[in-house]
Design a protein around this nucleic acid. Structure first.
Length: 1090
RNA sequence: GGGCGGUUAGCUCAGCUGGCCAGAGCACCUCCCUUACAAGGAGGGGGUCAUAGGUUCGAGUCCUAUACCGCCCA
């Protein structure tokens, strides 16, 4: 037997490996002959595992990618992973917490190490899932948004934008999580309704003429108030605008965020934002602790006073309240206001309170200094390319959403107070305050570039050893574990050989030549030896003094390099002891003598000495370290400190479409595969990701990042609720694959992916489509089994064009061509559901239900010639069907296809996608077979209506009304017998209705069914009358239309013609039914007479 | 408050630029283990296309309003 039982697990396990081994998914940048098709996979976060939304996203991409590959495009689907700053940091933080480790105790470097331990695990899990789904992506080109090349691209992008003045620093309100001590994005804030109060507070007017009452839900922030605002048209307050009030309780000086002192007199201002109906119509303005107040503050140029620290405790600006938690402070302040008689009243109030999705802490809007991208300029081109249709959104409605947001775009805050991510490539000079932005383009030497990148990625520190460099370069790369990091730099990042870093000897001499050498000495007790000896060795190692030197040489050299030496050693050994030794030459000479061979009393010998001329003892150098001399561009100082913050994850993923192809290097991949052809993603990240990619792409590449953006829906549960772990309604794609197979899951997701609507997924659906997989399997089994029997000593045709085809062959071939065309149209307009259901209907309801059945007679009992032809057609149609279905159901189709008697490729992913063949369209024969189907169905219906078991064979007389149809009937006699369960079949053009038969009326024939006395004339009469009623109803509708002059005049002629034809047909049918009824009636009356 | 989308069979949804009697899957009812498939086959019932107007020869499809539901932005 060629095929056994359908067992998805068994077949799905083996094929992916085979495809990979044969490199079927690898795109070739050197192939410039074929047109290309490229897709950058939205990189999943390395936070855990994939959910069903990912499965949908991957499937939709894979369907198109596989089709394009089969169609012969040079196809690249580039996969990867996103380091997902906050999300990943959070996952690792929680893991550590479970072990009782606090991330602040651990410290930045150690924490990042922990994340790097976690990330490969998550990556492997996700990769396996993607493979299980069958995604045909090119793993040889996979990338990670935090890999060596991406980090370089990010620094390049940042530097460029900064130098163009498009990146700037400014104070800004962020959602601050006081528990995790980090800013979080708007997305990660969850609003919950909570009961609270509105406090009405009196702010006395400066001139003592009374007070203005403000309403607030957060009285503790009043300490940071810098204005009171009212609506400009509010008659109650108009006269007060411009006056000042005295801020209650605050009788101390406060400092603004940039260090200016201000007092407690604050202005009353007018702003449209104020809702005159809320509270008293007057609101306090706290720019540092409320986003709206911040905006108003910006508009009115108000000072900004921060009154809390990063743990949400009151700070020095809060005067007597300093050190209190914000809620304690609230209580105390309310009490104090009451005491002073400034609290007018308290009302209960339900309001939305923001909580951190992750830690649960109540979010504190908090002023901090952040980096921004000026997006107005970037948005300009990004708007144009969408407006003019260079980039199209599918469904198109998203274009509007995108544009609306882009027209009103706000500057983009790109700094995040977390540790995991691309650290901002900005170094602040500690001496002159200069802001230095560095990328590796300040080095002309490629090896130096690499070393800077390693430093920038915190793989090495600013002073480093040969060993550290070598260890890193020769260890396995994270993204491509089959490459070392050096190879990754060579093959992916810079695309050229880096001979200086090939082996340790090369690296060593390279370091010696290019970097400041920093000797590190140890005493015999293995402890780091102090400052003075290091200096001398340092001067010696860098040839600032020679092999033998006097105290004067050392003194002079030291004075010249003092700053540099002090800075470097303070980095390595912390405190610098005994600087006084370098006070003058005499003290220095004494010290040198003391530590020289022969004179040393303290047993720490560093030098030899002859006549006050010293030499270092090189054996004392335990380790030679090197120093990257990043210098301040303004004052040349080495004393730089890198920005603590990291970049928003979207800053790096915004570079994804070209960063993955090697940018900023001009790689062949970038040349070949950019712009990418398609982006498939969910609507939830249009602003976060899609918009940023378009802006970045237009800015850096001067070209759009993709042609089409297909926006798919959210996968919800069957009740339409969002899937979430807490609700427990998640459908895990792996579970589904386990139960029903990846093919069934993929088919379900594809057939449900109608444009513009959420997908409600239920397990039942997946189960249902597993039945389809089973159907494919069994139909194929039928074909292959019969083929095997036949092929023992014969062969079949690969082409069906010139065969002596029968009616049903021509019919199925025609249907196939129409299916090919319809499927192609569907997929080219991204109508996935239509694509899937077209194939489904063709395969199941045409090929299986009718063709296979009609053909069985020939397959079983035909002559060799007949068998040869029919099997050729069966295989031909199966081959084309499998090729089309492959894009949705890759595994089962490959398994079957491999068993076909001929193949145009080794594997299905690279076999040629079917094209419509006009020569295989036979309209006449198709019409005849359709009529035959109708006839058979009408006979079956009679059976049903008279409750005749299918096992009981009937005698049927058929009267064809058409010569050609007569031929078909004669030829397919046995097929009809089989399909309609007929015993004796009589076909005769001149037939009169035999007695005791029921009439089944169809287009090209009438069938008289002998139900052998079981006929109930009355029942049959009723049945026919019902049919007549239906037909007459249709006739009257048709009649109404045709009698309408306007219809005839205004409707297109083809519609009118069609209507007329329909009318004639219906009319004729009605006549025939009437005749049948008359006939029945005569029997009926005849019976009565008897 | 502004914007977008939805409301079609018991359930989940298709239905394109208006044109046969509005479709599918599941569920339901009747019959059948017929040699590819019971994960199957054959037949059947079930819809005033949310409501009210309008445009049109013709409206599930276009327009307006209303109701309800959902999402996004503020």
């Amino acid at each position: 037997m060629p095929l056994g039982e359908y067992n998805p697990k068994q077949i799905e396990e083996k094929w992916y490996k085979v495809w990979l081994e044969n490199k079927l998914f690898e795109a070739n940048a050197d192939d410039t002959q074929r047109p290309y098709f490229s897709v950058a996979m939205p990189p999943p976060n390395v936070t855990g595992s994939l959910h069903i939304g990912h499965a949908l996203n991957m499937t939709l991409q894979d369907v198109i990618v596989r089709i394009r590959r089969q169609e012969g495009y040079n196809t690249l689907w580039l996969p990867g992973f996103d380091h997902a700053g906050i999300a990943t940091q959070w996952v690792v933080t929680r893991q550590l917490e479970e072990q009782g480790i606090n991330k602040f105790d651990l410290g930045r470097e150690k924490f990042i190490e922990k994340v790097w331990e976690w990330v490969p695990k998550a990556k492997e899990t996700i990769k396996k899932q993607i493979e299980k789904l069958g995604a045909s992506c090119d793993w040889s080109k996979q990338r990670f948004t935090l890999d060596e090349g991406f980090a370089r691209a990010v620094r390049e992008a940042f530097t460029k934008l900064y130098s163009e003045g498009l990146i700037y620093k400014a104070p800004y309100i962020v959602n601050w999580d006081p528990k995790d001590r980090t800013a979080i994005s708007d997305l990660e804030v969850e609003y919950k309704e909570e009961k609270g109060n509105i406090w009405y507070i009196r702010y006395p007017l400066e001139d003592g003429s009374g007070y203005i009452v403000v309403a607030t839900t957060r009285p503790e922030t009043m300490l940071g108030d810098t204005a009171v605002a009212v609506h400009p048209e509010d008659e109650r307050y108009k006269h007060l605008i411009g006056k000042r009030v005295k801020l209650p309780l605050v009788n101390w000086k406060r400092k603004t965020w940039d260090g200016k002192e201000i007092d407690n007199l604050i202005p009353i201002i007018a702003d449209d934002y104020v809702d005159p109906v809320f509270g008293t119509g007057a609101v306090k303005i706290t720019p540092a602790h409320d986003p709206n107040d911040f905006e108003i503050g910006q508009r009115h140029n108000l000072p900004i006073v921060v009154v809390m620290d990063e743990t949400a405790h009151m700070n020095e600006n809060a005067g007597v309240y300093k050190g209190l938690d914000r809620y304690e402070a609230r209580k105390k302040i309310v009490e104090d206001l009451k005491k002073e008689g400034l609290l007018e009243k308290v009302e209960e109030h339900v309001h939305n309170v923001g909580h951190s999705q992750r830690s649960g802490a109540v979010i504190e809007p908090y002023l901090s200094i952040q980096w921004f991208v000026n997006t107005k300029k970037l948005a300009k081109r990004a708007i144009e390319v969408v407006e003019n249709g260079e980039i199209s959104f599918i469904p198109e409605s998203w274009k509007k959403t995108y544009l609306r947001w882009m027209y009103d775009i706000k500057d983009w805050c790109i700094s995040r107070q977390i540790w995991w991510g691309h650290r901002i490539p900005v170094w602040y000079c500690q001496d002159c305050g200069e802001i230095n932005v560095f990328s590796d383009d300040m080095y002309d030497n490629i090896a130096k570039k690499v070393i800077f990148n390693m430093y920038g990625d915190t793989r090495i520190s600013q002073t480093f050893s040969l060993k550290e460099i070598a260890n890193y370069l020769f260890s396995k790369n994270f993204t491509h574990p089959e490459k070392t990091n050096l190879e990754f730099y060579e093959k992916v990042v810079f695309k050229r050989e880096i001979p200086q870093l090939k082996d340790e000897t090369h690296i060593k001499s390279f370091l010696e030549e290019n970097y400041i050498k920093v000797p590190v000495l140890f005493s015999k007790k293995e402890e780091l030896v102090g400052f003075p000896p290091h200096v001398v060795f340092y001067l010696y190692a860098n040839r600032y003094i020679g092999n033998s030197f006097t105290a004067k040489d050392v003194y002079e050299a030291y004075k010249k390099h003092e700053k540099e030496i002090k800075f470097i050693y303070s980095q390595i050994i912390g405190e610098l002891k005994k600087e006084e030794i370098f006070k003058d030459i005499q003290t220095l000479e004494k010290w040198l003598t003391d530590h020289a061979y022969g004179n040393c009393e303290i047993k720490k010998i560093f030098f030899t000495e002859t006549d006050k001329v010293f030499s270092v003892i090189e054996d004392n150098i335990v380790e030679m370290r090197y120093f990257i001399d990043l210098r301040c561009k303004n004052c040349n100082s080495l004393n730089l400190k890198q920005d603590e913050d990291v970049l928003d994850t979207w800053f790096s993923s915004g570079l994804w479409p070209f960063g993955t192809l090697g940018w900023p290097e001009k790689t062949p991949e970038l040349e070949r595969f950019y712009p990418t052809s398609l982006l498939v993603t969910g609507f939830d990240i249009i602003f976060f990701w899609v918009a940023r990619m378009i802006m970045m792409g237009m800015h850096f590449m001067k070209e759009k990042p993709f042609e089409d953006v297909y926006i798919h829906a959210l996968v919800r549960d069957e009740k339409g609720e969002k899937m979430s772990k807490t609700k427990g309604n998640v459908i895990d794609p792996l579970d589904m694959i386990e139960l029903y197979g990846a093919d069934a899951l993929r088919f379900t997701l594809t057939v449900l992916a109608a444009q513009g609507r959420d997908i409600r997924l239920s397990e039942k659906r997946i189960e249902g489509y597993k039945h389809f997989a089973n159907k494919i399997w069994n139909a194929s089994k039928f074909v292959l089994t019969n083929l095997e029997n036949f092929m023992v000593n014969s062969s079949i045709y690969q082409s069906v064009n010139d065969l002596d085809l029968s009616y049903e062959d021509k019919w199925i071939l025609t249907k196939l061509q129409k299916t090919i065309e319809k499927a192609k149209d569907a997929i080219n307009s991204y109508k996935y559901n239509e694509y899937a259901s077209t194939l489904y209907n063709f395969f199941w309801h045409e090929y299986c239900d009718w063709y296979l059945e009609l053909v069985k007679e020939r397959v079983y009992k035909g002559s060799d010639k007949e068998k040869q032809i029919v099997l050729s057609v069966l295989v031909y149609v199966l081959d084309k069907s499998l090729k089309m279905l492959h894009s949705i159901m890759p595994f089962i189709t490959e398994e079957i296809w491999q068993k076909l008697p001929y193949k145009d490729a080794d594997y299905l992913p690279v076999a040629k996608y079917p094209e419509k063949d006009e020569k295989l369209i036979f309209e006449e024969e198709t019409k005849l077979i359709e009529a035959l189907k109708e006839l058979i169905i009408s006979i079956r219906t009679v059976r049903g209506d008279f409750n005749i078991e299918p096992s009981r064979k009937l005698n049927v007389y058929i009267k064809p009304l058409d010569d050609n149809f007569n031929k078909v009937l004669n030829k397919l006699e046995n097929g009809i017998k089989l399909l309609a369960k007929v015993n004796e079949l009589t076909v005769d053009k001149s037939l009169e209705r035999p007695p005791n038969t029921v009439v089944a009326i169809s287009k090209l024939a009438e069938a008289y069914i002998d139900i052998s006395g079981a006929i109930d004339v009355e029942k049959e009469l009723k049945r026919q009358e019902k049919l007549l009623k239906d037909v007459e109803k249709s006739i009257s509708i048709s009649e109404k239309k045709l009698s309408n002059e306007n219809f005839i005049k205004k409707a297109p002629t083809e519609v009118v013609e069609k209507e007329k034809a329909l009318y004639e047909e219906l009319k004729e049918k009605a006549e025939r039914i009437k005749a049948a009824i008359e006939n029945l009636k005569s029997i009926f009356s005849g019976k009565e007479e008897n």
